[in-house]
Design a protein around this nucleic acid. Structure first.
Lengths: 67, 67
DNA sequence: ACAAAATGTAAAATATAGTTGACAAAAAGT
DNA sequence: ACTTTTTGTCAACTATATTTTACATTTTGT
């Protein structure tokens, strides 16, 4: 899996630390870190929570062009 | 969780059975069934595969308005 | 240079996504 | 009415998302 730089950028735009975002989404900091690093595929529910926290759409942050 | 009727409708529009969609997405028929029934949250990777199979966007099929 | 905050990372545990096989109920075809 | 296809559902299993604890590294602030 590829790194999620779009998510990292959107988080930076909001001036949230990984910890901040984790708390808003009610997951651990490591989970946010792992998603940004592309280490695993989060559930859609978590993706939606992240999108709402960052004021972005699913397509903006999580669409994957490659197979 | 709520039923995913938008996904069911998009599948109907393509004239795919749950089995058809499952094979395209390389998951079991029961998994597709469970997602349409709203029994669990799929991973983003699977959501993207479903969207591609049904020619829909993530926002069209998987955005959740409620918390 | 130093301290504090933020990020990267790893191992062991838990929760839940997804599989497999099997059968019943409902819908569609003839 | 009958047969076939599709869908719903259940139980036991496997794979993996996510947690917790803990520590090292990097970045930021003073």
């Amino acid at each position: 899996m590829a790194k999620n730089l779009k998510m990292k950028a959107a988080r930076a735009l909001k001036d949230y630390t990984q910890q901040d975002l984790a708390e808003i989404c009610q997951v651990s900091r490591q989970t946010i870190n792992a998603i940004e690093k592309g280490e695993y595929n989060p559930t859609i529910h978590l993706c939606v929570a992240i999108c709402k926290a960052l004021d972005k759409s699913l397509d903006e942050l999580f669409w994957e062009e490659e197979t």
